[in-house]
Amino acid sequence: MAEPARGGTRRHWPILLLVLALSLVACGRDLTTGELEGVLVDPPSPKPSFVLYDTSGSPFDFVEETRGQLTLLYFGYLSCPDICPVHLAQIAEVFDRYPDIARETKVVFVSVDPGRDTPEEIRSYLDAIDTRFIGLTGSQSELEAAQDAAGVPPATFVGDGDDYTVNHAAWVIAFAPDDLNHSIYPFGTRQTEWSNDLQVLSTMGRS
């Protein structure tokens, strides 16, 4: 009795898979909740105004260079083995899954450790994670001004010699194409949350 039923189910699988595949294509990217899962910023805040230097030494005006684009801003340092590389690698992994979102997103990593991190080292650090990521640096006072503008507590340095550690804001600040900060992402954000939120953010401010 069970034989015909099983056969029938098997015959329907290709059709079901086709319908599923077509519905995914119709949705464009992937299924999302349509809601942001990050920590909401209410009301949304404008982009911070600051000018630092990219890894080729050119001035980088944050507002000008990222206008109208989905932008992720993060303050970290290269000697950090635990938080920074994992947080950034999570984003890079999701970029690999959604190349169209990666193309329209700017990830801006600001090194807050000018005493150790040279522009060349920042470039090679980011290249090991994702060659698309932008690295910025500046003088101590320029970096403090940028952190202040971005509304994060300034990084502080603990310890002596070359082996000091850095306390720094470990959250990613996300700006939608409407140039507003709608949400932030503390350390520990999962790839599934990034997948959802990058898709939701990419549509905000688009008519």
């Binding site: 635990d82 938080i83 507590p153 990084a155 603990v158 550690t165 850095v166 306390n167 804001a169 470990a170």
Partner: peptide, 15 residues
């Protein structure tokens, strides 16, 4: 041996 901790101001550091 390191421990990552969150400070009062919300920043993270390791010691």
């Amino acid at each position: 041996l390191h421990e990552t901790t969150m400070n009062d101001d919300g920043t993270m550091g390791m010691s």
